Simulated scan of single mutants.
Amino acid sequence: MADGARRIWVTRASPGAEATAARLAAMGFEPLIDPLLEVRDLSPAIDLGDVAALAFTSVNGVAAFARLHGDRTRRVFAVGDRTARAAREAGFTEIASADGDVEALAALILGQAEQLDGAILHPSALEPAGDLVSPLVAAGLSVRRLAVYEAVDRAPSPETLSALDGLEAVLLHSPRAARTLAGWLTRHPAPGLRALCLSGAVAEPLGTLVQAGRLKAVTSASHPTETALLDRLTL
């Protein structure tokens, strides 16, 4: 493949970045892995005494919780299939996937609330991208959020910044990564670069950059899954 041809910048944190890169390579693209976020585990005390179910909104949440606690008997609600698969690989057996976003996950939990005999624990990022707890509490459920990891901004490499003109697109999986990218593009415009975003919420921080000539286009996936995101590369 010629240098710079069909290159796609993968901005998500490891180890998810490597999984995305493998999918891109299988599609015939050349992935450039340079995360804009770095995930760091936290060390909170975990009490599952009154917990009937766990609600995960990310693979990172599953991984961090699994490293902190050995219990795998609780029921799991997962935001999407990748998160559900991560929970299964971690040893959980009773798993339901919302196959969507945080709102879809809240709806899934509410639809099965009568089956729950206890509280719901939401292991999450220190600064979660969406609010899962409020709609569940408003519906009368006992829910608490526990930060098990944090996402820290990470600067792109000088090599990535110098290669912006030769990249076909940048993939963004979170609003936090999009905000970080927006900051860098104010200093390093990329008028030929397409930003492909997992959802409208992810795309929001980038909207003004197109009008300012710092991005070529910003597009959201039709559904908040990575498959739908990668489908945008063929449009």
Rank of each mutant, 00 (worst) to 15 (best):
I95W: 04
P123W: 10
H173W: 02
T180G: 06
L105G: 05
F92Y: 15
A147M: 05
V79W: 03
D99C: 13
L193P: 01
L146F: 09
A190D: 01
A90R: 04
V170C: 02
V143T: 10
G140A: 09
G70F: 03
P156S: 11
W184M: 01
H122Y: 11
P191F: 01
E103K: 09
D153I: 02
D165N: 05
E168A: 15
P123E: 12
V137C: 13
E127C: 06
A155D: 15
R154A: 11
L172E: 03
G192R: 10
W184C: 02
S162A: 14
T180A: 15
S199Q: 01
A139I: 04
G183R: 02
L105H: 04
R67A: 15
A155L: 10
A113I: 05
G80K: 04
A155W: 09
A169H: 11
V137Q: 14
S157A: 12
P175H: 07
H122E: 06
A64D: 05
V59F: 06
D131M: 12
R187A: 14
T83F: 10
P156D: 07
P156C: 02
A86W: 10
A190H: 00
S58G: 09
V152Y: 00
L185R: 07
L108P: 08
S142L: 06
L193D: 04
R154F: 04
L146C: 11
R74E: 00
A139Q: 12
P158W: 07
C197E: 00
P128T: 14
L193C: 02
L141P: 05
A182F: 10
A66H: 00
S199P: 10
R75C: 06
A139T: 10
R179V: 09
E89N: 13
L196D: 01
A169Y: 03
T160E: 00
R179L: 03
E168N: 00
L132R: 08
Y149H: 06
L196P: 01
V148F: 04
A63V: 03
S142D: 14
E89R: 12
V148A: 07
G91D: 09
D117K: 12
E159W: 04
A169D: 07
G183F: 03
